[in-house]
Design a protein around this nucleic acid. Structure first.
Lengths: 124, 124
DNA sequence: CTTTATTTTAGAATTATTCTAATTATAATA
DNA sequence: TATTATAATTAGAATAATTCTAAAATAAAG
């Protein structure tokens, strides 16, 4: 594991922020001012391939990166705000329907977050 | 509903291909040679806002567009190949855990598709 | 040390998507 | 129908996210 791969992995595991590559870049730059975006992207790709982090695509936002700890997501369909939830584990049921080959799954639940609901009411 | 919005909606609903904007552009160009990408993107955005189609972000691929008919997805974690599955409906359970505000949800199950499994075996 | 391999940097290149302004088509009205 | 207003489409530039390439720096192996 290289220096930056380690730093990036720590950031992703410690913060519960679902950070983008750009956010990670700005964070790392605070202590490593010479770091460059390509390094972040390279290491994020390596970490994903190694299965140490997970890339998450959210509509209307650059890719985000998350721990591999099992959890689900609640996404605001207006502003994209993202939070963690823990819904029941579906692995067993999925395997009994689809067979043993499942690696993992991704469950996103879309709603309208309190902030966006307020804003809409204001407008009417 | 405008001409292109209609054509695009039909394509998305008829084909089960989870098409990208670019693929739709190439399809439409066959019969409407003067069409331009911006039109596709504009109309896709409108259709998404109207709730007539759904945008899906897949890691490592441009956005794809899908019918709003309820179904889940099986995604190959190597090549990104995408297919539809019908897992049990989770809406009830999600609502009882999270409240009534749920719009919809998105379940993607990751595995390694037969083709990619073969390729790996060949290499070893 | 010296050589070799790996990682990082710098910046150009690519890809997907959005934006802006001009043009065309559609609908509404006199 | 001609006139005006509105909305959709085109063309192409602009932007944003990500990847690529080659050189420089660092680490590992002999």
């Amino acid at each position: 594991m290289t220096k930056y791969a380690n730093l990036i992995l720590e950031f992703i595991n410690q913060s519960k922020e679902h950070m983008t590559a750009e956010q990670l870049f700005l964070e790392l730059k605070k202590t490593e001012p010479r770091v460059v975006q390509a390094t972040i992207y390279n290491n994020l790709n390596v970490l994903c391939q190694e299965g140490l982090i997970r890339r998450m695509s959210i509509e209307g936002s650059p890719d985000r990166y998350d721990t591999i700890q099992k959890h689900d997501h609640l996404v605001c369909n207006k502003c994209g705000a993202l939070s963690d939830i823990n819904f029941e584990d579906l692995t067993g049921k999925l395997e009994s329907q689809l067979g043993e080959g499942i690696l993992f799954y991704d469950l996103k639940v879309y709603y309208v977050c309190p902030k966006c609901r307020e804003n809409k009411e204001e407008k009417t």
